[in-house]
Computed example of a mutant assay.
Amino acid sequence: MILDAQHSLVAQSLDSPLGAETVNGDGFGFGWYPVGSEQGSLPSIFHSVEPAWNDENLREITDAVESPLFFSHVRAAAGPPIQRTNCHPFRYLNWLFMHNGVIHGFHELKRDLTFAVDRSLYPHIQGTTDSEVLFHLALTFGLLDDPIAGMRKAVQFVEEIGRARGVDHPMQGTIALADGATIWAFRYSSEGRSRTLFHSVDIPTLQEMYPDVPRLKLFGQRARVVVSEPLNDLPGAFLEVPESTVAILGTEGYHYEPFMARAVPA
């Protein structure tokens, strides 16, 4: 998935056909939970400001690490500087967070958004990105108790502040959260034209569809991925997550829930 797939993460860092930025060479990050991970397990993270295609440590780590749940991310800096503290995924306790997108007008909204972060959480913000502030807003609004409600309140707050400051469509992107056992993958934008988000079909179905593809025999029966772009061109292998939806991946597979009823009008 990270190195060797047809449209691997490294390949997407060089050429991302469905991305807002074709090249994503401003650093990368990798976060993973330990073998036997369950809700509450603490993840490890590795960040680098090197392009993913140019960091030999990435291959060393992916060759050595065994993990039942991991996140990976390549970055195209949209303003905040290229530094390790600005690389995703971000971590708080047992939670990992990634964002593929942007808070439009963040330069104008930053003070209001940052000052709304709970005082106890504020010292944990180490970088300067809109994504890290969004994560800490969601934590402030109750993500630890209810991830969907916490993220919804954070996005609604961003839109409220954005509209008050004259930003037509403040929120754009897809978001991934994990607690050690479950992944929540959100697709939403204020204008209703969100960046892409896909998840794989279950492995038994894929193996039945493509019995002559050797690579599919390498995966366990419960292997699943959530990605910004399909990892290969096999028809039917990946399903697109609908707009304003959260895809939830647990031990029983995927299910969808509505995220935001509609985009907030400008």
Rank of each mutant, 00 (worst) to 15 (best):
V246K: 07
R224N: 11
P235E: 10
D168W: 12
L197T: 03
S200Q: 06
E240A: 14
I203P: 03
H169M: 12
M171K: 07
G220K: 12
L249V: 06
D168S: 15
V167C: 05
L234C: 09
Q172F: 11
E191S: 14
L177A: 05
A247Q: 06
H169S: 12
V226W: 01
I175W: 00
L218F: 13
G180H: 00
G220L: 08
V167N: 04
P211N: 13
A178G: 15
D179A: 08
T245F: 05
M171Q: 10
T182S: 04
V167Y: 02
T205H: 13
R165N: 15
V227C: 04
E229G: 02
V241K: 02
S228H: 05
E240T: 06
I248G: 05
V213G: 04
V167D: 01
G250R: 10
A237Y: 07
A181G: 14
G236E: 04
E208W: 10
P230L: 13
I248Y: 04
L239N: 07
S189W: 01
T196E: 07
A181F: 02
R222L: 10
L197N: 04
Y188Q: 13
A181D: 13
R187V: 03
G173E: 02
P235T: 13
L206Y: 12
Q172V: 11
K217F: 15
A176F: 03
A237K: 00
T174L: 02
V226D: 02
D179W: 00
P242D: 10
G166S: 09
Y210C: 09
R187D: 02
G250C: 07
A181Q: 14
L231M: 14
A223G: 06
L216P: 03
H169A: 13
P235N: 09
G250I: 11
A223F: 15
T174W: 00
V246W: 03
S244F: 07
F219A: 09
D179T: 08
A223K: 06
G236K: 03
V201D: 01
S189P: 05
D202V: 10
N232R: 04
L218D: 14
F219L: 14
F219P: 01
L197Y: 04
A185D: 03
G173F: 00
S189A: 14
L249M: 12
R222Y: 15
Y210V: 10
D179V: 06
G180C: 05
T245W: 07
F186K: 12
W184L: 11
P242A: 09
Q172I: 13
S194Y: 01
V225L: 08
L218M: 13
F186S: 07
A178F: 01
G250N: 14
T196P: 03
P211M: 10
P204Y: 13
R165H: 15
L197W: 06
Q221H: 14
P214T: 12
M209C: 04
G166Y: 04
A176Q: 09
P214R: 11
R215E: 15
S190C: 09
D233T: 15
G220C: 05
L231A: 06
P211E: 09
L249C: 08
A178S: 15
A181K: 11
A178R: 02
A178W: 00
E240G: 05
R222M: 10
G236Y: 05
F219D: 03
V241P: 00
D202C: 11
M209R: 08
L231D: 00
P235S: 12
V226T: 09
V226L: 12
